[in-house]
Computed example of a mutant assay.
Amino acid sequence: MVKIATWNINSVRLRIDQVLRFLGEEAPDVLCLQEIKVAEALFPHDAFEQAGYTHRVVNGQKGYHGVATISRLPLRETGRHDWQTNGEARHVGVELLGTGKGLLLENVYVPAGGDIPDREQNAKFGQKLDFLENMTVWATGVTRPSLIVGDFNVAPLEHDVWSHKALLKVVSHTPVEVAALDRFRNAHGWVDIGREHVPTDQKSYSWWSYRSKDWQASDRGRRLDHMWASPELARRAVAHQAVQACRGWDRPSDHIPLITEFVL
């Protein structure tokens, strides 16, 4: 059994105590972090080493973006894609060793895309669509069982948002973004693990805005974080959970962790 988690932590140094608490309570074998907001040289390696996560790959950036994969299992880095072609640290791939033929694990942080869903008026939105298109091209060449996880910054389904009608013109749920993510899914036949375990007619969120005074009472969330697997790997997923309790911790990230367990 291998337990893999993903979490947009919104600054790993600011929230290292929360990450360590999560590791202590949930004990995943591997944790993929996004938006670590720190260069690799200043990443809190010692804290993870002491917690038993002795294998780490960090693609960091000072103050912005950045991803890191930490593990109790041996791993080796397989690549860092610049799908936005601007040098931002938004992806790292690893192979988990000791898991049969070796599981490929891709950790990605898709750009948010700004506030205006129009590439002519908003360059960031165009960059987001290009990022997704470049991911799609890459996915056509995936030949080994793989798991891609992270903050996709797209809530594709009607019940992935608190109000489908209200958010149709809001970045993260627009038809053009959903179509782009659909093309990525179809390029490899990715299976959305979260929706394999939570029916599509039920609300499911992984992010709640800081703007809400009582996020839990208003419950205006979006499912921006995902764990997608190759079809043959998806059949080995035996459990999945979204750890909503983390959103209620002191000074939380606006995202919560997702965990999937695989029989490998």
Score class of each variant (00 low, 15 high):
Trp215Lys: 14
Ser204Tyr: 05
Lys203Ala: 12
Val198Tyr: 01
Gly189Asp: 09
Arg185Trp: 01
Asp160Gly: 04
Asn186Pro: 00
Asp225Ile: 01
Lys169Ile: 03
Val137Ile: 14
Ala187His: 08
Pro231Ile: 07
Tyr205Asn: 08
Met227Tyr: 04
Val161Glu: 09
Ala239Arg: 14
Val142Lys: 08
Val161Gly: 02
Val137Tyr: 07
Gly221Met: 05
Val149Gln: 11
His173Thr: 11
Lys213Trp: 12
Ala237Val: 15
Val154Met: 09
Arg220Asn: 15
Ser163Asp: 09
Ala180Pro: 04
Arg211Thr: 03
Arg144Gln: 11
Trp190Ala: 11
Val170Pro: 00
Arg235Gln: 15
Lys213Phe: 11
His197Thr: 13
Pro199Lys: 00
Ser218Gly: 03
Asp160Val: 08
Glu196Leu: 09
Leu168Arg: 14
Val238Asn: 09
Arg220Asp: 13
Asp151Ile: 02
Ile148Met: 14
Ser163His: 00
Val170Ala: 14
Ile193Leu: 15
Thr136Tyr: 05
Glu232Asn: 10
Ala179Gln: 15
Ala187Glu: 07
Ile148Asp: 05
Ala166Glu: 09
His197Glu: 07
Val137Asp: 10
Asn153Gln: 10
Ser209Asn: 07
Asp225Val: 00
Ala239Gly: 10
Pro175Trp: 07
Val238Pro: 00
Ser206Asp: 00
Arg195Asp: 06
Val178Gly: 06
Leu157Gly: 03
His173Cys: 12
Glu232Ser: 15
Ala217Pro: 03
Tyr210Gln: 14
Phe184Lys: 12
Gln241Arg: 13
Ala187Ser: 09
